[in-house]
Structure formats: structure tokens, C-alpha cells
């Protein structure tokens, strides 16, 4: 019977954690709606999360798009379907790989950075200092980061989609013998508005999850260097799992027949 008790404890722990994150998110939304607002913090977050993530997003997307083209060509050759490379690269990048890979890269780059920064601020009493200076940490630290990530990650996903498709195009036209104009025409013709919408919505949700997890784990970190390390590790794990889970749900919402 011990395993039943352990299962029960684990379930209760999980539900409590979900509840705490939900309350944290709710509080952040409440603070988003009421002044004071911190536009400078928002601008800095947009720069850090958006602009400075472009290199890693671009490199991830171009290699993924190129590899995808090679795989589809090789797989398609088994049943004489090599010609579908442009269409499958486009749909694969826009619907799935673009948003998921950008989301995971943001979790690695941004979630960890936010969690480590806020956890260090907590350990060094900077969060307490904010409170004594009449500044709500939720409003000053969490809201700008979550809002910025929600706004800017869809743009990163769009950039990642385009670069990924370009990666496939470069490989297909450079080494697989595809006609450049036909490749582009096939890509454009095949993509639907629903594909693009799902990609951008996924980007917004993944961005929100990534920043929220960074802030949540940072604000709730333990003491000392070990506390900062645990917060950082936990934030990335939670963000990655939640992004993949949200991707499954959103794919179901957009594409289940």
C-alpha cells in the first residue's frame, strides 16, 4: 500500500505546484492591468529576449530546415515521392519544428537566464530592496519579461520558420537538384493561413511559458548558490516539458479533424 500513498503524495504535490504556478500567473496578469508600468524594463526585455535570441534561433532553424530536406528526400525516394520536399519542409517547419525548436531554444537561453538573474537578486536581497523602495517585484521583474516574451517569441518563430524553409530550399536547390522557382512556388502554394496562425499562436504561448517559468523559479529559489542552481535547472526542465505539452494540446486544437 506504500506505493499508493507515494502516488497520492506525488499527485497532491503536482497539483499543488500547478496551483502555485497558476496563482503566480494570475497575479502577473493582475499586475499587467494596473499601473505603474515599467516601459524601460519592457523594452530591455524585448531586446534581450527578441533581438539577442535571433542568432541562436536563426542557426537552429537553418540547420533543421536543411536536415529536414535531406531526410524527406531520402525517405521520399523509397516510394518515388522526392518531389514533396518543398511542401513537407514548409509544413514541418511552420506547424511543428519552427515553434517547438524556437520555444526550446528560448527555454534554454531565456528561461535559464531569467531564473538565474531573479534567483540571484533574491539571494542578495535585491528583491527585498525593491520592496523597501516601494516597487512591487512582480510588476517590475515578472510582468515586463512575461509580456515581452509573449509578444516577441511569435516574431522569432516567424523568423525561424522563414530561415528553416530557406535552409531546406538551399539544400534542395544546391545539392538535390530542385528548381529554385518551382521550390518557392510549391512552398507558397502549399502553406495555409491556419499553418501560419498556429505557428504564431504557439510562439506566443511558448514565450509566455518560458518567461513565466524563469520568473516563478527565480522568485521561489532557495538560498545560496545551490538555490540559484536548482532554480535555474528546474525552470528549464519545467519550461521544456510545458512547451512540449502545450504544443501537443495546441496541435490538437488547430489540426484535429
Amino acid at each position: 500500500m506504500n506505493w499508493i500513498a507515494a502516488l497520492g503524495r506525488a499527485t497532491l504535490g503536482l497539483l499543488a505546484a500547478i496551483g502555485r504556478v497558476a496563482m503566480f500567473f494570475g497575479t502577473a496578469v493582475t499586475h499587467l492591468l494596473w499601473p505603474p508600468f515599467y516601459p524601460r524594463e519592457l523594452a530591455l526585455s524585448l531586446l534581450n529576449i527578441g533581438w539577442l535570441s535571433l542568432p541562436v534561433v536563426g542557426l537552429t532553424a537553418i540547420f533543421t530546415g536543411g536536415a529536414l530536406a535531406l531526410q524527406i528526400y531520402a525517405g521520399g525516394a523509397r516510394f518515388n515521392a522526392e518531389a514533396v520536399v518543398p511542401q513537407i519542409v514548409a509544413i514541418g517547419m511552420v506547424r511543428e519544428l519552427g515553434p517547438v525548436l524556437v520555444g526550446l531554444m528560448i527555454a534554454a537561453r531565456v528561461t535559464s537566464s531569467i531564473a538565474a538573474e531573479i534567483a540571484t537578486m533574491k539571494v542578495t536581497e535585491q528583491i527585498d530592496a525593491l520592496v523597501t523602495l516601494s516597487t512591487h517585484p512582480m510588476k517590475y521583474l515578472t510582468v515586463p519579461r512575461v509580456l515581452a516574451a509573449t509578444l516577441v517569441v511569435p516574431l522569432l518563430v516567424a523568423v525561424g520558420d522563414v530561415i528553416g524553409i530557406f535552409g531546406g530550399y538551399a539544400v534542395a536547390t544546391g545539392t538535390l537538384g530542385f528548381n529554385a522557382a518551382a521550390y518557392i512556388q510549391n512552398t507558397v502554394d502549399f502553406l495555409q493561413m491556419r499553418d501560419i496562425t498556429s505557428s504564431l499562436v504557439k510562439g506566443a504561448v511558448f514565450g509566455c511559458i518560458a518567461a513565466l517559468m524563469g520568473c516563478y523559479f527565480g522568485m521561489n529559489s532557495g538560498r545560496g548558490a545551490q538555490g540559484v542552481g536548482r532554480a535555474t535547472k528546474g525552470s528549464v526542465e519545467a519550461a521544456a516539458v510545458l512547451i512540449l505539452a502545450a504544443n501537443f494540446v495546441l496541435t490538437g486544437v488547430f489540426f484535429s479533424v
Binding site: 540571484t120 537578486m121 542578495t124 536581497e125 535585491q126 527585498d128 530592496a129 525593491l130
Partner: peptide
């Protein structure tokens, strides 16, 4: 604050 707690 003890460690000054300046904002980095």
C-alpha cells in the same frame, strides 16, 4: 542592506 543589495 547587509550586502548593499544594489541592482546589478
Amino acid at each position: 542592506f547587509q550586502g548593499a543589495a544594489l541592482f546589478d
